[in-house]
Nucleic acid binder design. Structure first.
Lengths: 256, 256
DNA sequence: CGGGGAATTGAATACGTTCAAAGGCCGTGG
DNA sequence: CCACGGCCTTTGAACGTATTCAATTCCCCG
């Protein structure tokens, strides 16, 4: 397995073997990670606070629901599915997190993680221990300011995902809005290659959307046939974005 | 129309005529609203920062999407529906906000409101002008701390709503999880009367859930017949909460 | 008492789900 | 290098559920 870059900061999207590392500047954690200007010099979080690019093997949990909240994580490379226990299907997929995004932070106020996060592929995360972050924030107002900015942004984005995905009427709407959400988030983290890579299985997507996997499969096949998308296994290209927006019942103007 | 209480702070849920005012301590804005202890005395936000119980008439917008972000609002009494423009149905209901909850704050980081908020009934909101809040926060670290706590809580609750409502398979699941979400939020703001009041029309609920209103109506009738709920117009009692959780596909233990 | 919007009910149709089976892909071992 | 086996994904056909459109009832307000 290839190693993550040794340099302290990733200036542009880079690939080591299979893994795609997000550019640090595009990462949701960047406001914290970036050295802050403090009266009389710089204050660098990387020294002593941030644990960079901790590897998480495919299938391994980053944290489990109910586990004590200990750290904020940003995904540097890879992807995670977020799950809750569920008696009938044994797990309910309640979300996905991709590189450049924060994960688990919504448990901050209540002291435990609100779901389980499982790596979908070989992944790397940057970790800020929560208590240490708070201690530093106590001392460095600029840092607290950045923390605030970061959380506001996350709030906005999770709201955006919610309105994009919630209350879609039929299968076509649900599937296409999922694809659009995926695309928007991929762009945001700075990968502008037209080909998206689905790091999760069909099962997981179907579970998330509340559809049987067969129905999802049929919808994707139909979109393919209609020329809306180009899908081959886990490689996906949105061939007709405008028409896809239309199918999803979303406004034609980019909702980003 | 009855007037809001004249007292500066509402110590317990109170009713003036029709309106139910949430108890200040149960309000999401309370961390900011509550006088903070500062070295050498108290710092009271109510003086000079907070605009209390501004009335909003039924049907009137509190703010519109794309409007410049100017203030954080907490709902003191009443309820709002949150909508986005939509060509086919002319509006897409993307959420509801009830007394004790914040509304619109997710637009903070991007400088504009992310949706339109329309009062469903005569309502009252407490308003904190954003710029003034930031200025104060610059000076009073305790205030900034409380702001942070408040946002973390909101993040958690919006995540909870998301997982409760997202990806429910069939009509029964969607409708029952909506009712459960409603009940949880009503409890949270301190109203423990068994009867919930639906302040929105059936149309709005159906729109939000992505169902035709007829289908929603049928589901409610069926639940009624099965003894899960007791519904009469806009008055609703969840008669068998456990069974309702089960229908929704949610764990029996309270998800709160 | 009458009017009008909202909510419910009914019946035909369209849509999505289920169960069964086949196809494709990938890793392992011969 | 090819064959095998397992898992993931797709396809097929019958069934069940949700949507649609129309009609009726309910309820609030004039």
């Amino acid at each position: 397995m290839s190693q993550p870059p040794a340099s302290p900061c990733i200036k542009k999207p880079c690939h080591t073997g299979e893994e795609k590392f997000v550019q640090c500047e595009r990462c949701a954690l960047f406001p914290l990670c970036d050295p802050v200007e403090v009266s009389g010099g710089q204050f660098n979080l990387i020294e002593g606070l941030l644990e960079r690019r901790v590897p998480v093997a495919a299938g391994a949990p980053l944290f489990a629901e109910e586990e004590e909240f200990r750290a904020i994580y940003a995904i540097s490379a890879g992807a995670f599915k977020l799950t809750l226990p569920d008696e009938r299907s044994n797990e309910k997929v309640c979300g996905f997190s991709f590189s450049g995004e924060l994960v688990g932070y919504s448990g901050m106020a209540v002291g435990h993680y609100p779901y389980r996060a499982i790596a979908l592929e070989q992944s790397y995360v940057c970790e800020i221990p929560y208590q240490r972050l708070m201690d530093y924030a106590e001392k460095v107002p600029e840092l607290r300011n950045n923390l605030f900015t970061m959380l506001s942004m996350e709030t906005f984005h999770s709201h955006l995902s919610f309105t994009t995905l919630m209350g879609r009427k039929n299968v076509d709407q649900r599937v296409s809005s999922f694809l659009i959400n995926l695309e928007q988030r991929t762009r945001r983290r700075g990968f502008d290659h037209p080909t998206l890579t689905l790091s999760m299985r069909r099962d997981d997507i179907a579970n998330f959307l509340g559809l049987p996997k067969e129905t999802l499969s049929r919808a994707l096949s139909k979109f393919q046939q209609q020329g809306l998308i180009n899908i081959d296994g886990r490689r996906l290209v949105l061939a007709d974005y405008q028409q896809l927006l239309n199918t999803a019942g979303l406004p034609a103007a980019k909702t980003e």
